[in-house]
């Protein structure tokens, strides 16, 4: 046991066990009941599975409201997340059995497909939550992003001061570093966290090549310091970019998960309405 308990292991895997039982029971019920006309959503077992599935979906969606409610009580959001993950996964079995493996180009299968997409995106979320937090810590090595940003500002001041002691050609490197060291930006830039176009990285190369042309020893010292400062800045910038990209990956799946859930609820409404109105 570590000092902390993750949402997956909440209460000794309580929700994993409960979900497993639920799946088992539904499989047994599905297998045991063989009605005339084949297994489908219109049988009593089918209605039962559908009802369970519908209630589960609505309850699972409620997590989004619940976790923003910050209300008192004996529950923890960790427990809710744990239940959300395992019960959500159990839907793959419950809902699939509910269909009786009858698929078509209709609103019913649309609801099923949306549900599977929601679960798939959620699955990626779990994967991201397991993988990226540790990567983020590793990346920032115990420092906070704001502390690193502060260090970058200090480096900018130092670089500016150093250019005054160096030939004009170094000013170009300083300007490049100042103007072109972008952190974040557009969607792709944010997500990739790439440092290929980093102004500071390019400035390091430029300043190093300029430094080789110097002959004055005082200037050489300053140039070495400048290259060191630019390298440090490039290093920090690349770490900050990676930090943002990890955070973006941990967030982005929600941009699919939540709208798909809203779509799912709408199509479920249509599915239920049509079933009871037309059949």
């Amino acid at each position: 046991m570590s000092a902390h308990t993750s949402f997956l292991a909440h209460e000794r895997f309580r929700w994993f066990k409960r979900s497993a039982w639920l799946c088992l029971i539904t499989i047994v019920a599905y297998s045991a009941y063989a009605p005339v006309g084949g297994r489908n959503g219109g049988t009593w077992v089918g209605y039962g599975l559908g009802t369970i599935g519908l209630l589960l979906i609505l309850w699972l969606s409620w997590l989004g409201v619940k976790k923003r409610g910050f209300s008192g009580g004996s529950h923890t959001i960790r427990g809710w997340t744990s239940a959300h993950v395992y019960l959500g996964l159990s839907l793959t079995i419950i809902a699939t059995l509910h269909t009786g493996f009858e698929f078509g180009w209709n609103v019913h299968t649309l609801a099923y497909t949306l549900m599977m997409l929601v679960i798939l995106s959620g699955g990626f979320g779990v994967f991201a939550y397991l993988r990226y937090p540790a990567k983020m810590s590793e990346n920032l090595i115990g420092q906070s992003a704001s502390a690193l940003k502060k260090e970058m500002q200090d480096l900018d001041i130092r670089i500016a001061r150093l250019t005054q002691r160096l030939p004009d050609s170094f000013a170009e490197a300083a300007r490049m570093s100042l103007d072109q060291t972008k952190i974040g930006g557009g969607f792709m830039a944010l997500l990739s966290g790439s440092s290929k176009k980093c102004g500071s990285a390019k400035a390091v190369a430029l300043a190093s090549s300029q430094a080789e042309t110097l002959t004055d020893s005082a200037q050489q010292t300053s140039a070495t310091e400048m290259v060191a400062s630019l390298s440090r800045k490039a290093e920090i910038a690349s770490r900050l970019r990676r930090d943002l990209s990890y955070k973006a990956i941990m967030d982005i799946w929600l941009w699919l998960h939540v709208p798909l859930t809203l779509g799912l609820i709408a199509s479920l409404g249509a599915h239920v309405f049509i079933v009871f109105y037309y059949w």
Binding site: A3, K67, H75, T76, P133
Partner: peptide, 21 residues
């Protein structure tokens, strides 16, 4: 310590992953 809140510190209860104790 959320002494007036039923269930204890809300920072701990609000954490979705169990990272906060």
């Amino acid at each position: 310590l959320c002494r007036d809140v039923d269930g204890g510190p809300s920072c701990v209860r609000a954490c979705p992953t169990g990272a906060v104790i």
